[in-house]
Simulated scan of single mutants.
Amino acid sequence: MAVVEQEAQVTGLPGAAAKRVRISIVLGAWGLFYTCYRAYYALGGTVGMFGTPASYQQWRMVNAFGAGILLVAAVLPVATLPLWRRSHGRLVLPAICWAVTVGCVMHALINGIQRALSLAGVMQLDLPFWKTIDHRTADLQDLLFNEPWFLVEGLLWAWLALSSLSPGTARRRWLISAGVAIAVLTVVGMLSATGVIGTFIV
């Protein structure tokens, strides 16, 4: 409790430390949830699969790699909690939150739009990783499960950053810059997905 009060005094934001702890714990739990999902397939699970991979070994490796990245993402917000009490940390961590927010929200929007267009029959997604695939099931799973996870993940990181920034100019700059970056990258991603420009991987 003393540490929380001390941090609140350092940041000048009453209750900021306690709120940051709560958000970080939620972020960690949210990340672990998706980590378990990917780890299940990495270990050979098959429930919920919407097709037959061209290579089961590659499928498991991709999910193992994804689970590893997600585990880091789950641990990061909790592991960096002490750094918010340091001046350098309060400069660097909002930038990290910004990058994760932009990346996750952009990913959710671009892929969500593509899946919706695919369900509507407007766009046909090229999925060479699969030998056989139920496109409708794949689209629905991504649209209703995968992309909402990325969207919530991005919004939680945004909440973490905003809870630590002083009200006013700092928060407005963070929000506006993140919003502009998300909008621009989403447009670029969709132009790439529709073949208007070259490849843009998200």
Rank of each mutant, 00 (worst) to 15 (best):
L185R: 05
V188E: 06
A16H: 11
A161G: 02
Q6T: 02
F65E: 02
L70N: 04
A29E: 04
A178N: 05
R136N: 10
W30A: 11
G195L: 00
M61E: 07
Y40R: 01
L125R: 04
R172T: 11
G28T: 08
G112E: 12
G31S: 11
V72I: 15
G15S: 12
V3A: 14
F33W: 13
V122L: 12
A54M: 03
D139G: 04
C97K: 06
V78T: 08
L83H: 06
A74V: 01
M106C: 10
V92K: 00
V3L: 14
P148V: 08
A120Q: 12
L140Y: 03
L81E: 05
I96M: 15
S166C: 06
Q141T: 13
Y37D: 08
Y41H: 09
I197L: 04
A161C: 07
I113P: 03
V122W: 07
A73L: 13
G112Y: 05
L91Y: 08
V196L: 13
H88T: 04
A79Q: 10
Y40M: 00
F129Y: 08
E7P: 00
E153H: 09
I69W: 12
I133Q: 09
V100H: 10
A170Q: 14
R38S: 06
G198I: 00
G45P: 01
T199W: 04
I25H: 01
G179K: 14
V188P: 00
Q6E: 06
W157R: 06
D139Y: 05
Q58V: 12
I23P: 02
N111R: 14
L117Q: 11
F150D: 05
M123I: 12
W157D: 03
G112M: 09
L151E: 00
Q141D: 09
H107C: 08
I133H: 01
T80E: 08
A170N: 03
H88Y: 03
V92W: 11
Q6I: 00
L162M: 11
N146A: 07
